[in-house]
Design a protein around this nucleic acid. Structure first.
Lengths: 125, 125
DNA sequence: TGACACCGATTACAGATGTAACTATTTACA
DNA sequence: TGTAAATAGTTACATCTGTAATCGGTGTCA
């Protein structure tokens, strides 16, 4: 498990891959057509870089290549989150949580869910 | 109010400035000596770039210069948070909150505080 | 079976970033 | 009052990022 950092644009690509893998470059390109306004070549560059960073794997499938994640989304999320927490909130979780609680619209279900997590927190060491 | 983006290293500098301004380049450098391992020249580069980005202001004070923030911390936090939420959690606040709730150690006070915020959320539209 | 379309690979290139040395000017000390 | 130390400003440079165009091979259709 290395310590690569995934850039902004690369995250967009990875989100597509994590959501529905394995897939071909074509599929990634058409998925992204809705969200980003990139030339197909741009998406391919991202894919290559992600392969080089060991975040993506690809293998020939028939006469084409298919891509699949090599790093787990949860690991990348964890790393990006830690680094964001550190950078913007000086490592303090509580202010971060307060900030997002204040600036979010949450459904009653979500609120209930979060409340449950808070309760679990209470049984910490 | 512009739409600049503050890089990782720049955030470290800005955090120092926001915590105790106005201050001189020297003060920033010695504050950072504890946290980062940068040459003084590196810190000065950051300061210059932040001035160019209009995030910092500086004025001569006596025979030296003093720096002070030009952008409000809360605005920068808001922007960085939004972009992080978008990038890593696809814009979904609830999973983000769940993630940080799970991965944080919180004091009873903080838990109580967050619970209060959750209650306030309930009176949303 | 030749021209075209599609795909993966390579190359491009400007701006941002991390990291700093060098230079010129001012200041303080000997 | 010359010289060294400190300061601010300028320049450097490799890497990463965003954003692609182009090249070379292969399969397809006429």
């Amino acid at each position: 498990m290395q310590q690569v950092s995934i850039s902004d644009a690369e995250w967009q690509v990875m989100n597509v891959v994590w959501d529905a893998h394995p897939l071909t470059a074509q599929e990634v390109i058409s998925q992204l057509a809705g969200q980003a306004d990139w030339a197909p070549a741009t998406v391919k560059t991202m894919l290559h870089r992600l392969v080089k960073k060991n975040v993506l794997a690809y293998e020939p499938q028939g006469n084409r290549y298919v891509y699949r994640p090599r790093a787990r989304r949860s690991d990348c999320v964890k790393q990006a989150s830690r680094s964001f927490l550190e950078r913007v909130f000086g490592g303090e979780s509580a202010p971060l949580l307060a900030h997002f609680l204040r600036s979010s619209k949450l459904s009653p279900d979500e609120i209930a869910q979060l409340r449950k997590l808070l309760n679990e927190q209470e049984g910490r060491s």
